[in-house]
C-alpha cells in the first residue's frame, strides 16, 4: 500500500505548464523530499495532494482517497504546512495551537506526546503573539499546528525557506524524530543539501521529475568522476576550462569549480598543460565524490 500514489499528473496555468505528466509513489513511514528550484512545480504538486487544486490530467490518491472526489476525507487526515507562514499572527503561540487542535476535534493534551520535542522550543514563548516570533520559531509553531491532530500524512511546503541554518538543522532533526514515530512526510525544498536527509527524493525541474530514488542511489546511478579545482585567477580558470575540448561540465561551487571530463576522455595532464599555456599555474585540484547538487545540475543539463 502506498500513502501517496500519483499517476501521469499534469497541471497548467493558462499556457504555463506547472506539472508535466508526473508519476510517483510515497510508501508508509517514508520521509519523501521534492528537491527543485523555485518555479519547478513543487507547490502546485503539494496543493494538488492537499486537494486545494484540481489537476488537469492524471490521478492522485492520498491515503487511498482520490484528491478530487474524496477531498473531505483527505482534508481531515492530512497535516499541511503551506509555503508561506500561515498562522494567525494576532493569536499567541498557545492560542494558535489550541485553535488548530479544536478545529480538528482534538486537544493539545491528547497529542502532546507527538509535538513534545518541538513544543519545548516554543514553550517559553507560549504567550507571545505568533507574529512576533522569529522565522525559525514560526516554522516550528506551524509544524506543531500541522501535527496537532496526529495526521496520517504530513505535507510540508518549503518549511526551511527563509530560516537560519541552525533552525534549519533543528527542523530536519524534528522531521527525523517524526519519522521515528512512524509519520509519513512529504516535504519540498529548494536546498539541495537537504536531500540527503530524506529517505527518498524526487528531483523536480520545470514540471518534470528528473529522477526519483534514495539520495545515495541517485548519486551512485549518476556517478561520474568529478574534480574540484581552484586558482588565484578564477575568471581565467573558468574561461579556460570551458574552452578546453575534453571537458564536459563546469560549475562553480563556492570557492571551487567542479568539472567533469568527457566520458572516457580523461586526461588531467593535458589539462594542466593547457592551463599553464594560458598562464594559469597556481592551481589546486582534487578528485571529489559528486553530491546531490552536482547530480542535480548534471541531470538538469540533459
Amino acid at each position: 500500500m502506498s500513502i501517496v500514489k500519483v499517476n501521469n499528473l499534469s497541471k497548467s496555468y493558462g499556457k504555463t505548464e506547472a506539472l508535466k505528466d508526473i508519476s510517483f509513489e510515497v510508501k508508509p513511514g517514508e520521509l519523501f523530499g521534492f528537491i527543485g528550484p523555485d518555479g519547478a512545480g513543487k507547490t502546485t504538486l503539494l496543493r494538488i495532494l492537499t486537494s486545494l487544486i484540481i489537476p488537469d490530467k492524471g490521478t492522485a490518491e492520498v491515503l487511498g482517497y482520490d484528491v478530487v472526489k474524496d477531498y473531505r476525507k483527505i482534508r481531515s487526515s492530512v497535516g499541511y504546512m503551506p509555503g508561506r507562514f500561515s498562522l494567525y499572527q494576532d493569536l499567541s503561540v498557545e492560542e494558535n495551537l489550541k485553535f488548530f487542535a479544536t478545529i480538528f476535534g482534538t486537544t493539545l493534551e491528547e497529542n502532546y506526546n507527538l509535538i513534545k520535542n518541538i513544543y519545548i522550543y516554543l514553550e517559553p514563548f507560549k504567550k507571545r503573539k505568533a507574529g512576533k516570533l522569529s522565522g525559525g520559531m514560526k516554522q516550528k509553531l506551524a509544524l506543531c499546528c500541522a501535527l496537532i491532530h496526529k495526521p496520517d500524512l504530513l505535507i510540508l511546503d518549503e518549511p526551511t525557506t527563509g530560516v537560519d541554518p541552525v533552525s534549519r538543522d533543528e527542523f530536519w532533526e524534528m522531521l527525523g524524530g517524526l519519522k521515528a514515530e512512524g509519520i509519513t512526510t512529504v516535504v519540498s525544498t529548494p536546498y539541495m543539501d537537504e536531500a540527503k536527509l530524506c529517505d527518498r527524493v524526487a528531483l523536480i525541474q520545470k514540471g518534470n521529475i528528473l529522477d526519483i530514488d534514495k539520495p545515495s542511489e541517485l548519486i551512485k546511478r549518476n556517478y561520474r568522476k568529478m574534480y574540484a579545482i581552484k586558482s588565484d585567477n578564477m575568471y581565467g580558470l573558468i574561461k579556460s576550462l570551458n574552452e578546453f575540448e575534453n571537458i564536459d561540465s563546469v560549475n562553480i561551487f563556492g570557492e571551487y569549480i567542479h568539472f567533469t571530463f568527457n566520458e572516457g576522455d580523461e586526461n588531467m595532464d593535458a589539462l594542466k598543460k593547457y592551463l599553464s599555456e594560458k598562464g594559469i599555474t597556481e592551481i589546486e585540484y582534487k578528485e571529489i565524490k559528486p553530491d546531490i547538487e552536482d547530480i542535480f545540475i548534471e541531470l538538469m543539463r540533459k
Binding site: R75, S76, V78, M81, S86, F100, I103, F104
Partner: peptide
C-alpha cells in the same frame, strides 16, 4: 491574503 484560508480549507471545517 495571509494564507490562513489555505490551512482552513485543508481542515475538517
Amino acid at each position: 491574503e495571509l494564507g490562513t484560508m489555505e490551512i482552513l480549507l485543508v481542515s475538517p471545517l
